[in-house]
Design a protein around this nucleic acid. Structure first.
Lengths: 345, 345
DNA sequence: CGAGGCATCGCAAACGTTTCCGAAATTCTG
DNA sequence: CAGAATTTCGGAAACGTTTGCGATGCCTCG
């Protein structure tokens, strides 16, 4: 059963007539071994197909040269998460590999607690560093990682205090810009579609929305904020709510662009045409937006670049000699997004 | 820097006043240690927050208790891809965890060679077993894994011979059923939209299509087979081709349902209404299909169940005492799909 | 020419766990 | 009740790698 007699460093060393330590150093590019010997060893390693065993290596050195990205599979299952994680990890991978790091994704299913899930991965030392996604407004994982002194980057902002790195899309900025645009076009009642999750992005989006309103001297009406559960079907919910209102809003701002599908459908059924009777703006452009009719005005982000930047931040964290300050503010970086001027708003 | 003074099995043993071996056995549920001692050890482990170090464990035992799913990120970046892998890995995870196995996703970006990518992961012994996806028509990874005697399941069928397990959606069956349905409705010229990739699913789909035609006594016309590169935009290409044909096809069968978006748009622009003037059937239903107008007729698969089944097959493979037969046929299992009778065809 | 420095490499001790083997304690058998 | 069988546990050797330290040879410099 355990047939796999892979070639080990010992075999390689004896083939070469050299010591294990020299071979090890050569494979790791240590300056202590001469250039020629390195080349010879590398060549022989290639010839014999030797690749260092990761377990032995990380057992001894304590590092795996790997960073793990945690991902909730139930999030991605909505059409929403769509291209997000794939494109992101593509950029992340590219960025990390330039520093000799590997990427690995840890999928956390909906029936698992995402906190316990992370703790387990950390304790088993599956990776040297972690990217946590689906960050909650107050996220205990952040404290855990900081306490354990394991490097990480939060993908998404949080209210949890402390000295750590975080990267997020500019939810607040986008919401504000969208509201600015709508008020400039004369809209005064703007429906806001959030999600039911307790993520910080909801709050940031809401704050941007409020800021945009006050910029225009408009009052904030709690009734105009909706938090449907499902993504696509949530759009229909929002449409229904809109249709039921006595003073009907003339614009809708969606944190989830896929909500536009349900919204469009429901509005059309009611004889209200989106983009004409009601302006619609979505948060993040995705390929589907371009095939809605009318095409959906939204904000574009280069997800691959976003992932690449995420990797850069991670590499910085790994090289950081940490002097943890207790109550410092998170080092939050917001990634820019660009307005895509389409037909719906 | 290496502050992480995690608690080890030695600490736990000395805390308990027992030997390391007993503790190790207790943690692994060995029958050699009495029930009471096990409980006591488990409790203390819980109290101290001890979790076995994965590196040490797998170095000694040679197994990681982990299966890896390889995934191309450029595939997933298409709209359908991500919901596919997310839902799949959710089911897979559930299934594997019932056998005490962990799941881990290895993302392979578009600028990496997916063969080398796998070889590296295998040689470094990142996981005990692998699920390879994006299986090519002749896939060298299969030979590699068989030669190395590492357990794996191919997610997707292949022409590569040998004694190995494979699981796939029933592309051929679906294509045939779709064609049967269309010919029964009187269609005689059916456009077929494949992808430009060299995957076996393209061939299976084509074969099912041909079988369906011959069932109805219709000739096969190579001209009716299109292989656009992009998914959504590919739909537009197909529409253009359709419009240009002298004898215009009255139905379209798509291996990629997202092609329907571009197809619909282009057809509508030309004054041809899909579902009325031209019947359209897609391969796999996804949430978007329901929001197309007209709704897209397609075939449904419970992706979570698909993933769950994948896990079961994997577990079977892991328990299999392998006596590799050289030229045996792959043990291919086809997962059933269900017709969703919608408006477009 | 001798002493010190540098470049290059080998020896052996870890890293944390599993597991073979033997020892001790307990129960069973005749 | 003696001996055998069984249960329960501890000692210690691995697993494959990295790395501190010491050894060797060679070069340089006073």
């Amino acid at each position: 059963m355990k047939k796999r007699s892979a070639i080990g460093i010992r075999d390689l060393a004896s083939h070469l007539g050299m010591s294990i330590s020299t071979v090890s150093r050569a494979m790791n590019g240590s300056p202590e071994v001469s250039k020629e010997t390195q080349d010879k060893i590398r060549a022989e390693a290639e010839r014999l197909g030797y690749r260092p065993n990761q377990s032995g290596r990380s057992l001894r050195s304590g590092s795996t040269n790997t960073v793990a990205l945690t991902m909730r599979t139930d999030i991605g299952r909505t059409v929403a998460g769509e291209t997000f994680f794939m494109a992101l990890s593509e950029g992340l991978q590219a960025s990390l590999s330039s520093a000799g790091l590997d990427l690995l994704i840890l999928p956390c299913s909906s029936d698992q607690d995402q906190n316990e899930f992370l703790y387990r991965a950390v304790d088993r030392h599956l990776a040297d560093a972690f990217v946590i996604s689906n960050v909650q407004r107050y996220d205990p994982r952040i404290d855990y990682l900081r306490r354990g002194d394991v490097p990480f980057v939060a993908l998404g902002s949080s209210e949890t205090k402390g000295d750590y790195a975080a990267l997020d899309l500019d939810f607040a900025g986008v919401a504000r810009a969208a509201v600015d645009r709508l008020t400039a076009a004369g809209h005064r009642r703007i429906l806001l579609g959030l999600t039911s999750q307790d993520t910080n992005s909801n709050f940031a989006f809401l704050h941007g929305y409020q800021k945009g309103l006050s910029d225009a001297g408009l009052p904030f009406d709690e009734e105009l904020v909706l938090r449907p559960y499902d993504r696509i079907a949530g759009g229909a919910e929002i449409a229904s709510a809109l249709l039921d209102m006595k003073v009907r809003p003339t614009a809708v701002l969606l944190i989830q662009e896929t909500m536009a599908m349900g919204l469009y459908q429901k509005l059309n059924q009611a004889g209200i045409s989106p983009g004409k009777d009601v302006a619609v703006i979505g948060f993040r452009e995705n390929p589907v937006c371009r095939y809605l009719a009318p095409t959906l005005t939204s904000f574009r982000v280069d997800l691959r670049a976003y992932g690449y930047r995420l990797g850069e931040v991670m590499i910085r964290e790994l090289n950081l000699s940490r002097k943890p300050e207790a109550n410092a503010a998170p080092r939050l970086e917001l990634f820019p997004m660009l307005l895509v001027d389409a037909e719906s708003g």
